[in-house]
Structure formats: structure tokens, C-alpha cells
Amino acid sequence: MRRNGRLSIAAVCVAAGLVGGGIWWSVSGAPHTAQSLPLMPLTFTHQDHGAFNCLVCHHNYTEPKLASWPFQHCIECHKKTPELAPIIERQFHQQCEGCHLKLKREKRASGPVRACHVCHAEERPPRF
């Protein structure tokens, strides 16, 4: 009985540890962590995307309230604005991969959908 008691205490501790770790793991997406995280390298070229209107991506060009924001560069603004930093990955993946997937399903020329290494390769010099 005593041995069982000790074992169940150990089991409870392990379970509590797992739950605590899980909670830490979840809340670690807090803005300060997200902001201090290094950016992923990005190989984005405007040549590949010449077929699209600039405003498809540069949404800030038509939103007057964003004109006065301190950061005007696309990724800089999303990375350095505290409320946008934690969701930069979700928003950009949604936009970039969403369009690629849509075109791929229509069997048209398209970019990577899940292949991280194609987008996040070492930076090429900008070619726009």
C-alpha cells in the first residue's frame, strides 16, 4: 500500500509537470517572445509575382490609418507591431500559401504550399 501511495504521488507529480509544461508551452507565444524571435530568412521575389496587383499584398497602400505608422516596410511593420508579431506566421502563411494552394488546385503555375525550405531559404538580393 505504502509503495502504491508513493508511486501514485510520483504519477501525480509527473502529470502535474506535464500539464504545467503544456501551459508554459502554450502561453510562450506571448508577444515579447514572438517579437524577439529572429525572423525566418525569406526568398521572395517580385518577379515571380509580377502578374498580380501590388495591392493584393501591399494592403497598407490603400489604408490611410496605416500611413502614419512608424514602420512602413511590409515585414518590419508586422514584426515590430506588438499585436501583429505573434500572428505574423499565421497571417503570412495564410496569404502566401493560400494563394499558392488556390492556384495549384486550378493547375496553374504556383509557388510552394508547405515546402518551408523554398520560401525560407537564405536570402537572395532583392530583385524588384
Partner: peptide
Amino acid sequence: AEPLLWRDIWPPVLPVMQTGVLASL
């Protein structure tokens, strides 16, 4: 297939990876 996937598992963890890690635990 995609070693960069580590970045999604490392904090801040994507929600999909949170549930994945939770399920494996």
C-alpha cells in the same frame, strides 16, 4: 522532409503543433 519544422515546434508554438505535442505526450 522539412527540418525547418523545428521552428514551429519551438516556442512560440503554432496551435497545430501544440495539439500535436500534447497528443504525443
